[in-house]
Design a protein around this nucleic acid. Structure first.
Length: 430
DNA sequence: ATCGGCTCGCGCAA
DNA sequence: TGCGCGAAGCCGAT
């Protein structure tokens, strides 16, 4: 039995791994877990590899306690998984939504003539169960997803007990001799080139971080989540991006401490479940999810109408990256992005809207925003990244009063930051 | 401080 | 076919 771990990089609450264990017990064959490190992942930077490898060390050690050998191989996933499949009776995949993740899985399916199972484990509601089409906006997905989510909630405690039991009691006995995997050496290599970021990877860090959030921040979430100066947010998106923690485990932890009817819990679940899975829905059902072509018609038309509007400022992508604009608020959030690998969600909107305003064309702006997003954010290259960047250009949004450059796309300005929160305090913190 | 207008189109009710 | 309403807004009038 082989489980090719790719999207769900964790042992806790991983349905694909649970399925693989159950299957290996059923067919009485030992289970091996494989992770393929590819240094070709588009836009991936050393800091991302460091974060990911820190998580994989925990995966290796947790699997060792279960007696399951873990292999970290460097190369192309299609070749490596095919090679490992030769001796396997069947193969288990987890599910990924990006083009490259789907392409890897399809290519392996074509190349390997074994039974292959794909198990979805990184969303609260499986994407095709929630909806069978690309949704227009949060309003249209929300009732569908919340309807399925009721059943998820009913069963969530049972599921947690089940998965905890599995991790506590399962022990594989046929352990191959050569299964010691030296991730530390690979990690050292990436650490030499990596920028410093504020996050340490791994499931245990994710749990710790989320416990702090539950204890000190969640009760104030409704009131303060849009106040970047207070950072009343979960900071969990890098861990979700690498599958180092399951959204279901986060939901379970939340339900253990609070009532799902509490307003602040509902507001948080709106982010964790509805908005995150709207992004997954968009990427899953949209061929060109990384292009302005996938915008709704009204947005494309209005951007076209204003293509040749005079831009008051026009910065190059390097000027943006270095934080050298005339706007000290903007430069501050760019600094947070460069130096921490993270930015508060509200500032991400302002940040992107201003690049849109201060670039020569929508395409130039889009390319600048997406490439900085994917280079610096530890949670970059996620379905949420693609949907959020296009939201700046009107995706999942409505039309507003027409104005220069933006047309009918929603506009934001610095006055809004001052009106809604203490922007000076944010600048100081950064 | 608060409020209406701006503007598009989905999906439900009729 | 009509109508309400929406991912975090802005602006001017009161």
């Amino acid at each position: 039995m082989l489980y090719w771990m790719q999207q769900s990089q964790r042992v806790h609450y991983n349905h694909a791994l649970n399925f693989a264990i159950a299957k290996s017990i059923e067919v009485k064959l030992p289970l091996h877990v494989l992770f393929v490190l590819t240094d070709e992942f588009p836009d991936a930077e050393s800091a991302h590899y460091v974060f990911m490898l820190e998580g994989l060390i925990e995966v290796r050690d947790a699997l060792a306690k279960l007696g399951i050998p873990f292999f970290l191989e460097i190369g192309n996933p299609i070749d490596v998984v095919s090679r490992f499949s030769i001796k396997a009776s069947s193969i288990v995949f987890d599910k990924g939504y990006l083009r490259i993740q789907k392409a890897w899985r399809n290519a392996i399916r074509e190349k390997v003539e074994k039974s292959i199972y794909e198990v979805e484990s990184d969303v609260a509601v499986p994407v095709e169960m929630a909806s069978n089409k690309r949704e227009y906006m949060a309003r249209t997905l929300r009732p569908k997803i919340l309807n399925c989510f009721k059943d998820v909630l009913k069963d969530i405690d049972n599921q947690i007990v089940e998965t905890d039991d599995l991790i506590t009691n399962y022990r594989q006995t046929h352990i191959p001799k050569h299964s010691v995997c030296d991730i530390e050496d690979v990690l050292k290599k990436y650490r030499r080139n990596a920028r410093n970021v504020r996050f340490i990877g791994g499931h245990s860090m994710a749990v710790y971080q989320f416990e702090v959030f539950l204890e000190h921040k969640l009760p104030k979430y409704s009131e303060k989540s849009n106040h970047p100066e207070d950072e009343c947010v979960s900071l969990i998106s890098p861990y979700l991006h690498f599958g180092q923690i399951s959204p279901l485990e986060l939901i379970g932890m939340t339900g253990h401490k609070y009532d799902f009817d509490d307003l602040f819990v509902r507001d948080f679940l709106e982010q964790l479940v509805v908005r995150r899975e709207l992004a997954v829905n968009f990427v899953h059902y949209t061929e060109n999810y990384d292009s302005l072509d996938s915008l709704p018609d009204w947005a494309k038309k209005t951007l076209e109408d204003h293509r040749y509007d005079r831009r008051e400022f026009n910065y190059s992508s390097e000027e943006f990256e270095d934080g050298k604009t005339h706007d000290s608020y903007w430069n501050a959030c760019m600094k947070e992005m460069r130096e921490t690998g993270f930015m508060h969600g509200y500032m991400r909107m302002y940040w992107g809207k201003k690049i849109m305003e201060w670039s020569g064309s929508p395409e130039i702006a889009y390319n600048t925003i997406l490439s900085l997003n994917n280079k610096y954010f530890l949670d970059g290259r996620d379905p949420v990244s693609y949907a959020s960047v296009l939201w700046l250009f009107g995706l999942h949004d409505q039309a507003w009063q027409e104005r220069p450059v933006f047309g009918k796309i929603r506009y934001m300005n610095a006055a809004g930051l001052k009106r809604k929160f203490d922007i000076e305090k944010y600048v100081e913190r950064v």
